[in-house]
């Protein structure tokens, strides 16, 4: 099992009601596996999935990334700084 921390911001933080979640995933797990898992529990993740980017340890990565125990994963909805 890998334990990862999932960080939520903006609309996902508001709709899910948490700023971070801790998830245990069967290894090996990819970013897509993590999103499948979250989507099953939180439909809002599915709604945003077509435009969602993943960051692992503060870097954008594709969904195919393999997650490691202790990773910090952030779900990045379309950003709107500036």
């Amino acid at each position: 099992m890998s334990t990862v921390q999932v960080l939520l911001f903006s609309v996902l933080r508001q709709r899910i009601g948490e700023g971070s979640l801790v998830l245990d995933l069967e290894t090996p797990a990819t970013g897509a596996d993590l999103l499948d898992h979250l989507e099953a529990q939180y439909p809002i993740v599915g709604e945003y999935r077509p435009v969602l980017r993943l960051a692992v340890n503060q870097e954008y990565v594709p969904e195919t990334v393999t997650l490691a125990d202790g990773d910090e994963v952030a779900l990045i909805t379309p950003v709107s700084g500036g």
């Binding site: 950003v79 709107s80 700084g81």
Partner: peptide, 10 residues
């Protein structure tokens, strides 16, 4: 910055 930096406005 407006496309990449993880900042969101409400």
């Amino acid at each position: 910055l407006k496309q990449q930096i993880p900042i969101w406005k409400r």
